[in-house]
């Protein structure tokens, strides 16, 4: 059982990387406690990464859990533990894509749409209760505009943009996570930046949501 706690690991980038390698090696050797620590270390990063893409807390928790179960099952196949973060993100990107495909499929046939809307309303209500109604409205408005900005991008442009500027991954890490070469990543990133900067939508979004 894990309780996600980001503050528990206030490591710098390099410390985190070496910590990851040690924990991953121990986890592969069969140390379940080491795997729990590794999952704790990355839980918040992965949960947020999933939330940025599907924008539902409950679904993001489920998808995050699926991602870590897949990591647990396949970590023994990872050859270079220094690439753990890129590998983790490649699993996460695929899981999110699977989830979005399933959701599109079910909503196309109208299956579970009522249940989804209900659970999402409940989720928003809980978020509102947590932070106050005004904050809840601002939050909803932000995600609506955020989605509108991303919808102007193609799938790859969107993914590359999110990984680089929202998830804060480097070009090399993105290239490994998406299994694309670096120049392809840069080309898509360039196109995404051009679209986003040219219409001034980011500036507008930030102006409205600045505290």
């Amino acid at each position: 059982m894990h309780l996600p706690n980001q503050e528990k690991y206030p490591y710098s980038g390099q410390d985190r990387k070496s910590q990851t390698v040690i924990l991953a090696e121990m986890a592969v050797a069969g140390n379940t406690n080491a795997f729990d620590q590794l999952a704790d270390l990355y839980y918040n990063t992965v949960y947020k990464m999933v939330y940025y893409r599907i924008r539902s807390g409950m679904d993001a928790e489920d998808v995050t859990q699926d991602i870590f179960i897949q990591v647990l099952k396949n970590i023994k196949n990872l050859k270079d533990f220094s690439l753990f973060k890129s590998w983790l993100f490649s699993i996460a990107v695929n899981k999110v894509r699977d989830f979005q495909r399933k959701k599109r499929f079910t909503s196309f046939f109208g299956v579970f749409s009522g249940k989804d809307a209900e659970s999402e309303q409940e989720n928003e209500h809980e978020a509102g209760a947590e932070s106050g109604p005004l904050e809840s409205v601002i939050r909803q408005n932000f995600w609506k505009q955020f989605e509108a900005i991303l919808n102007r991008l193609s799938y790859l442009e969107k993914e590359v943009f999110l990984l680089r500027f929202i998830d804060q991954l480097g070009i090399k890490e993105i290239s490994t996570a998406l299994k694309k070469n670096e120049s392809t990543v840069k080309t898509h990133l360039y196109r995404a930046l051009k679209k986003i900067r040219d219409d001034g939508s980011v500036k507008e979004l930030l102006k409205e949501n600045m505290p």
């Binding site: 894990h2 999952a39 940025y52 807390g57 601002i138 932000f142 929202i166």
Partner: peptide, 16 residues
């Protein structure tokens, strides 16, 4: 801002 607006996860993760 995106990070600030992500709601906190509510459930504990069960892996093993």
């Amino acid at each position: 801002t995106a990070e600030r607006f992500v709601p906190l996860p509510k459930n504990r993760m069960v892996l093993h």
